[in-house]
């Protein structure tokens, strides 16, 4: 099953790059001209995200570098201990919605220290794979179209992250017998 999925993953983009232009050509589309016409908006779209990303990443970096993140970890660790969540993985759980790069760094460090096949290694692998950088995605996606009021998006995003945390502990304990 995994072999099949990763095969699809490897072939997906080359297949799109093959099929789309050929079908377009058969439909009488002037492929080069239409491609350029669409691509024209790329620069403006990317640049538009700058103020939003600056605002978000400045706050996230201050939170992380100042030691506030570590304090939050120390405060929350005893609470999460109750559901069998190891304190070592908590920095990852806190950083995951805020900064993709930082979370991946923490995950890599934990896998290196505890071994990929340990409980902590499997747990952090599962958490890294099954959630996204909620704040970054919201900021980037909304920013690219100039949306400033996110309404309830952050709540549903964070609820999903919390679910991932609990579900990961459960899945690693039950499916991988730790």
């Amino acid at each position: 099953m995994y072999q099949l999925l990763s095969g699809i993953s490897r072939w997906a983009i080359p297949a799109v790059l093959l099929i789309v232009p050929i079908v377009a050509l058969l439909k009488g589309v002037k492929v080069f001209e239409v491609f350029v016409e669409g691509a024209e908006e790329g620069f403006a779209t990317a640049i538009k995200t700058i103020p939003y990303l600056v605002a978000m990443l400045v706050a996230v970096t201050i939170f992380r570098s100042s030691g506030a993140m570590k304090m939050t970890t120390r405060f929350l660790a005893p609470v999460l201990d109750h559901i069998g969540f190891p304190a070592e993985v908590l920095p990852h759980a806190i950083m995951r919605p805020l900064s993709g790069g930082a979370a991946l760094g923490i995950a890599t460090e934990l896998i290196k220290t505890h071994g990929p096949d340990s409980f902590i290694g499997n747990l952090v692998s599962t958490m890294q794979g099954s959630s996204d950088t909620t704040f970054y995605v919201l900021t980037l996606y909304f920013g690219s179209v100039g949306i400033r009021r996110y309404r309830y998006s952050i709540i549903s995003g964070l609820l999903a992250d919390l679910t991932t945390l609990v579900a990961s502990v459960y899945a690693v304990r039950v499916f991988l017998h730790h």
Partner: peptide, 9 residues
């Protein structure tokens, strides 16, 4: 964006 425009067309 270029590829999407093609796919759309």
């Amino acid at each position: 964006l270029g590829i999407m425009k093609l796919a759309e067309a």
